[in-house]
């Protein structure tokens, strides 16, 4: 089936079998590999993208449900929160293996876009679905606080 949606600001049309997760369409049909496969059951957050501005797990989002929506991936993030998050991630050298970090960053951007001054509890709540097997969590937490400071100016 042909599905039309907006991807990172551009209209795209893809052919995919009904029931195909958005994740695999992004990665293997559209060549956007920044969104990662980690578990396939919405349990690790490595595949997090924004759908109409809300974070979703693309491994569990069917392609037919994406029709006529707007999807943003790590390759297409922009805006004040995105800039602050990536700047903070760079400054604190958060990453280790890096495989989960696209998803972490997508969740962090959404957190800061909706809550510019998150507490530790807010961070736990918003980031609890994003697994990092390298356990970079202390830096993720610190980087989110730092990004909030950057946004405050």
């Amino acid at each position: 089936m042909a599905i039309k949606f907006n991807l990172n600001g551009n209209d795209v049309t893809v052919e995919a079998a009904s029931g195909t997760p958005l994740l695999w369409v992004l990665r293997e049909e559209l060549g956007l590999t920044g969104t990662k496969f980690g578990c396939g059951v919405a349990s690790c957050g490595a595949c997090t993208v924004h759908l109409n501005g809300e974070p979703v797990r693309s491994c569990s989002t069917l392609i037919e449900d994406v029709a006529n929506t707007s999807v943003t991936t790590i390759e297409g993030v922009k805006g004040a929160a995105a800039k602050a998050v990536q700047t903070a991630w760079q400054k604190l050298d958060v990453v280790q293996c890096g495989y989960c970090q696209s998803g972490q960053i997508m969740s962090a951007i959404n957190l800061l876009a909706t809550n510019p001054k998150p507490t530790d509890a807010d961070i736990d709540e918003a980031m609890g679905g994003n697994v990092c097997r390298c356990a970079t969590y202390v830096r993720i937490r610190a980087a989110i606080h730092h990004a909030a400071e950057i946004m405050e100016g």
Partner: peptide
Amino acid sequence: LSRKDTPQKINGSAKFALD
């Protein structure tokens, strides 16, 4: 000294085998 792999790993461009 910033990590050499950070820039690619925060914008989705780092290539892993699955990519």
